[in-house]
Design a protein around this nucleic acid. Structure first.
Lengths: 358, 358
DNA sequence: CTGAAAGCGCTTACAG
DNA sequence: CTGAAAGCGCTTACAG
């Protein structure tokens, strides 16, 4: 069944309003009978302006609809107060929430925010320099290969901060960065499943920022660590190719076919939803037959049936804190506040249960 | 159970790289032994430069790590190629997908993209003018009151286009805009439920861009129209206060308490998920006892259990087309291509069924 | 309290 | 093919 909608160009007839050149500081000055210098003082709230003069200028500003040209301001003053976010994605929950945290913080600090989406086709070097040319700071969401590659290409003299995957032990990212301790969170989630009596735990991975070495992702490492600590040989790592529900479904079908599988940890909630659906299609009950745990606690996860046990991540906190790291590079007198990142949190819901309750 | 993670500032020790002033066109000129004018020619790919000269300049550019200052370029050339998106939200599916469509189109056209999030606290007028001051065009996502209010405050001389709710019959938005025919889509979805034998259909509304008059939303109108056409007195309109799953759950509890309710149309998929969950909690089967239809076809809707019947919306297409409308105002010689918006589409899945199959 | 000068880093004509 | 001038719209010292 097809229900078609339509698009209508609004008011096509009216031609684009003739872009009558915007009023400049000089136009205002002339209208107010002062020098353009005085206009500059008024719009910058300088104290040394006579009340009556100020009023005349403000009236002229109103009349002419004057708006200060932000480009000229930036060039002349040298202050930019802008930040460009480089990210490979804007809609996946983790990315969108990080972006939201960044945006809030930037807005509160009076920074304007630009977004450049990284794609495999685009020349990363060119993308980075065009972002740099826009002035201001660079903010990189480096959860994946594209983001990590962009981060490694940022010239050293550019103000830049990032949100990244937890780096390997003893290593630090090339630039100031924040990250959550995904490794420990995955270890605890896995340990929790083992405590529930499951003989082993399977893991459906998200792609990692290091690319080829799928096994190197921090969430995978934490999962493996918990198994090894319990004397269990980790089963083959699954997934690692996609972030979305369909990818989870595809892996879920394979897992569902294996009757020995009773516990599955997933790299994010979308993968978990796909696994849930595949298990349902295969006639396997959750949590009766199989326990499933996700990662991230996306907004809908608590309302699924069964509701999803998952590791809550404070992406907005990561975004906020990363912005603080950038701001410190941009404003010499800026004191970064205490980190706002709330850590991770295993949220137990209906999709996980003891292995023996079936 | 609490699993805490942590944030670590990366490489705190290394002080912000001394921001040694970026190389300018003059620095390059000096290093290459030419006038800065010639450097300008090289970076702008002017043909009239001797090969050997060009190479010397390019070598100097490499050595000094020169990047053209975009601010100065914009001021001197008068070309901006940038667009600022005003939106009240960046994470809800409809908004995020629209933004994604906009971003793709802007990127393909070589425009940089800025985002300003509208909040009830902020002064809309100031937000609009600060966006305007950034130069370039304005793009407004006007699905809600905040967006609609911002749109009405855009000075007439500013290049601007919007994505909006379908306007009332015979009315057009204040600026060039695109919209989907939500009214007709809702009418068809409702008619579909009636055809399945349901005596009436309840509607859980999203907030509308007109605010107070909840009943005026196009989706609500289409729903009402289908009922009236079938000789049915529309039941009380529900919701209208929120967009998220919790809002749907709250309304769902009330609907679940009424045994006469057998069919529910929801203003978006999040509300539908909330209703699904509330019905589950009340012990009512979907679609056995109640049919539920959503709106938008969010990425996870097809993987829910039961999978959600919903009206697919091409938000990305709306975003793309709106950008075309803006670009036409920005570039005098730009010919907008054919609209890419694909219309709406009722996607029938498991959550809807005949009224008599219980 | 207000004005005239120089300059931010680039471009667009205009000369040679 | 290359250089010297003027200017984009503003700000920051410097004078009065």
């Amino acid at each position: 069944m097809n229900v078609t909608g339509h698009t209508r160009p609004g008011d096509q007839a009216s031609p684009a309003q003739k872009p009558r050149k915007a009023a400049s500081i000089r136009d205002v000055a002339q209208a107010a009978g002062v020098s353009y210098q005085t206009v500059s003082r008024v719009i910058n709230q300088h104290p040394n302006v006579r009340g009556e003069t100020r009023e005349r200028v403000e009236a002229a500003i109103q009349t002419l609809g004057f708006r200060r040209n932000a480009t000229a301001f930036a060039l002349a003053s040298g202050v930019t107060r802008s930040v460009t976010v480089l990210t490979s994605n804007t809609t996946l929950y983790g990315y969108a929430a990080t972006l939201q945290g960044l945006e809030e913080e930037a807005r509160a600090a009076g920074y304007s925010l630009g977004v450049k989406v990284l794609t495999p086709e685009a020349d990363l070097g060119r993308t980075v320099s065009s972002a740099a040319a826009d002035g201001g700071g660079l903010m990189i969401i480096g959860f994946d290969q594209l983001g990590a590659a962009a981060l490694s290409r940022v010239p050293a003299d550019l103000p830049c901060a990032a949100v990244v995957e937890a780096p390997p032990h003893g290593r630090t990212p090339p630039r100031p960065a924040v990250w959550a301790d995904d490794r420990e969170a995955a270890r605890l989630a896995t340990a929790y499943l083992l405590e529930l009596g499951h003989r082993t735990v399977h893991y459906v991975a998200i792609p990692t920022s290091t690319g080829a070495r799928r096994s190197a992702g921090p969430r995978a490492q934490g999962w493996r660590k918990a198994l090894v600590a319990a004397g269990i040989t980790p089963p083959e790592l699954r997934g690692g190719k996609g972030w979305d529900v369909q990818a989870g479904y595809d892996e879920g079908r394979r897992l569902a076919a294996d009757a020995d599988v009773t516990a599955v940890l997933c790299g994010n909630d979308d993968l978990a939803l796909g696994v849930l659906r595949a298990l349902h299609h295969a006639g396997r009950q959750v949590p009766g037959d199989v326990s499933v745990i996700g990662f991230d606690d996306a907004p809908h996860s608590g309302f699924l049936t069964p509701s999803l046990t998952t590791v809550r991540m404070d992406f907005q906190g990561l975004g906020r804190d990363a912005f603080g790291l950038l701001r410190r590079q941009l404003e010499s007198d800026y004191e970064p506040p205490a980190p706002t990142f709330e850590g991770t949190d295993l949220v137990v819901r209906e999709s996980s249960a003891r292995a023996d309750i079936r």
